[in-house]
Design a protein around this nucleic acid. Structure first.
Ligand SMILES: [Mn+2]
Ligand SMILES: [Mn+2]
Ligand SMILES: [Zn+2]
Ligand SMILES: [Zn+2]
Lengths: 139, 139
DNA sequence: TCTTTATTGAAAAACATTTTCAATAATTAT
DNA sequence: ATAATTATTGAAAATGTTTTTCAATAAAGA
């Protein structure tokens, strides 16, 4: 999905397209690692000098609401965002460079049934996240 | 593991046993849901009226360092702690009452090998967390 | 254009966490 | 027991992050 598609999504949901939003969207959309609000601010200001940090927060909020980005939880903090995955996907994070990758095809049904039986819980969803070293960082 | 065992752990690691620490330890050790620093403060102050919030932060830090507690990540926030699981266990959280439960026996080796092959990553660890409704909250 | 109204950035406020510091209390040495 | 040592404490201040307020601006639609 392209930056302009994100902007369309914003417009289609009644939001206006502005220089500030363009800068934030272009920054986050192309990132290959999770970015914090401050990091987005730093990067997006290269595209829109006048951009304010408040607007970064507000724009990230809207992008998350529209499921265009998603929060990334990490040992060091949970305030970072990345382009959202599509369908049933989970994250794979490089502990070296922070690179983010999605994967799919996990099958936890058997496990979830077994846990449900054992605990009496009705299981609604699961979080799965893998950590490792990308091909580059392994070398 | 009992509260006094946690206190022993603290002492064995060169820390002193104080009324403040006793209050925090007893509060967190017996909790069945994840507690934030402020929640710990509120509850532990019933045991030690003079307790300060700063000491709660400092004690939680030490308990985490000794692996007696662990951070719990949730959609609404990631600043809560619970008694740590033992060995290879994962969390199951009730979306109704917050009740925390551990489970084990997940086998992700095949998945992780497949993802490693597909992505070129060397996978080091995984986070898995289940969400659902406990027997009580289902009713 | 003109009008309407969402959006903006700055500043202030609200929160959360960490640091500083002198007083106190837990441990150790005597 | 008592004294000496030193980790720990809570209050206050400092720091850092996120949210709210508000008047000015700019986007979208007529
Ligand atoms: Mn899955
Ligand atoms: Mn596992
Ligand atoms: Zn890497
Ligand atoms: Zn429940």
């Amino acid at each position: 999905m392209s930056a302009s598609a994100w902007l369309e999504q914003l417009r289609d949901n009644g939001y206006r397209i502005t220089a500030a939003r363009r800068a934030v969207v272009e920054t986050v959309q192309t990132a290959t690692r999770a970015l914090t609000p401050i990091e987005v601010y730093g990067l997006a200001r290269k595209k829109d000098r006048a951009l304010g940090l408040v607007t970064v927060y507000r724009t990230l909020e809207k992008l998350e609401e529209l499921h265009l980005i998603q929060r990334v939880h990490q040992p060091m903090g949970c305030q970072a965002f990345i382009s959202a995955g599509h369908g049933h996907q989970h994250l794979l994070l490089c502990q070296g460079c922070g690179q983010v990758e999605f994967f799919e095809g996990d099958d936890l049904d058997a496990l979830m049934r077994s846990i449900a039986k054992k605990t009496g819980y009705q299981i609604k969803e699961h979080w799965l996240q893998l950590f490792g070293l990308c091909a580059n960082c392994r070398a």
